[in-house]
């Protein structure tokens, strides 16, 4: 059973308001893989992520996550959204936010001691012990991001999906996140959506390139040509740094 892929996407199409967003997408992800998903804005990365999470239904094609339908595997998949999307004035503590990862549809009433213990353990793992009672809005972007990571981890997922984890985060914190993810990859499959090819290039073996159509490349194959195809010529200049970063990796 272990050999079965944990994510299978077969001939998936998706359109919104008459606009084709994804065309004929085929992806297979093996257990324990560490992948990144890159592509331009509006290329369909988020849509694909939401299809994997079962939040959107594809128009045609099949999606199997952990051997079952996405809606059924949700509890075994951890999801970390972008940390910039939250209302900064919302009155919640770090504890409150992470506890949301222990919610269950059928259970009413307060959280149990076991729930709170699980939260404390996960916060320890991401080095956020002692932040429990802090207001979510008071902590820094990098800390907030680790809180959201904890929320995804506290349900003990088998697959971890991260949406733009490096958005508006400084370099040092980016490295810390990288260390944490490397450790987590020992026990779970990780898929990162990112703009930042440089960030993931040391960690991932394969890159899923999404721009309406999807192509999966081994990291070594990512070069100027692939990126140009993916983003189009306009963005090539902006990406130049990142590309050379990857080439260095190849030589090194």
């Amino acid at each position: 059973m272990n050999e079965d892929p944990v994510i299978v996407i077969k001939d998936v199409n998706f359109s919104y308001g008459g606009l084709h967003i994804l065309e004929n997408v085929n992806i297979k992800v093996k257990k324990g893989e560490f992948l990144s998903m890159v592509g331009p804005n509006g290329g369909g990365k988020t849509t694909l992520l939401k299809i994997i999470l079962g939040l959107l239904k594809p128009e045609s094609g099949e999606v199997h996550i952990l051997g079952t339908l996405p809606e059924r595997s949700r509890n075994r998949v951890g999801y970390m959204p972008q940390h910039t999307l939250f209302d900064p004035q919302f009155p919640v503590t770090v504890m409150d936010v992470v506890l949301m990862g222990r919610l269950e549809g059928r259970r009413a009433g307060p959280f149990s001691k076991a729930d709170k213990k699980a939260v404390t353990e996960v916060l320890e793992e991401v080095e956020m012990t002692g932040f429990c009672k802090r207001r979510f809005s008071e902590i820094s972007g990098g800390q907030r991001q680790r809180v959201l990571l904890s929320r995804a981890l506290v349900g003990r997922p088998e697959i971890l999906l991260l949406d733009e984890p490096t958005a508006s985060i400084d370099l040092e914190i980016e490295h810390k996140l990288y260390e944490i993810l490397k450790e987590l990859n020992k026990r779970m499959t990780i898929l990162i959506v990112t703009h930042d090819l440089g960030f993931v290039s040391h960690m991932v073996r394969r890159v899923i390139c999404v721009n309406k159509r999807v192509a999966v490349h081994p990291t070594g194959e990512i070069n100027g040509k692939v990126i140009q195809e993916m983003y189009g010529k306009d963005i090539r200049m902006v990406l130049h740094d990142r590309v050379s970063g990857i080439e260095e990796q190849l030589h090194g």
């Binding site: 999470l53 079962g54 939040l55 949700r74 509890n75 998949v77 999801y79 959204p81 949301m100 990862g101 919610l103 269950e104 549809g105 059928r106 929320r151 349900g155």
Partner: peptide
Amino acid sequence: EFARLRGI
């Protein structure tokens, strides 16, 4: 969105 993912 996250609430929906937790089956709520």
